[in-house]
Amino acid sequence: MYSEKVMDHFEHPRNVGEIENASGVGTVGNAKCGDIMRIYLDIDENQIIRDVKFKTFGCGAAVATSSMATELVKGKSVQQAMQVTNRAVMEALDGLPPVKVHCSLLAEEAIHAALWDYAEKNGIQIEGLKRPKTDIHEGEEE
């Protein structure tokens, strides 16, 4: 059901871990739906993403999209990272089954949430970046 690239990123996920004192951290999704992604960014003074790490609770596609998303933003500028859309993540993984497309959306949101955290901490604005919609507590209460 998954492409070879998805399986590769699921079995050998890149950039798993945490960054202490990260420039920005974003957590999206909720446990109720079965997917939570957290992305840590280390951004230098020139707004270049020096390092990126992730932790994900979720299905194979959720892990693979997190892994691919971190690969796509690593070494990029903040502006370039804004161009990493869910479509870009999906294409880089040679596609996802239709029921798993939301995982790639979550990856895009996780990056945006981490960038938002970075922007807030530093009092700057990133063009095109909106306050993240989903947060970890959303939908937890019934």
Binding site: V16, I36, M37, R38, F54, K55, T56, V63
Partner: peptide, 8 residues
Amino acid sequence: RDMSPLYE
């Protein structure tokens, strides 16, 4: 679990 934000 090592890659789970919930476990972290």
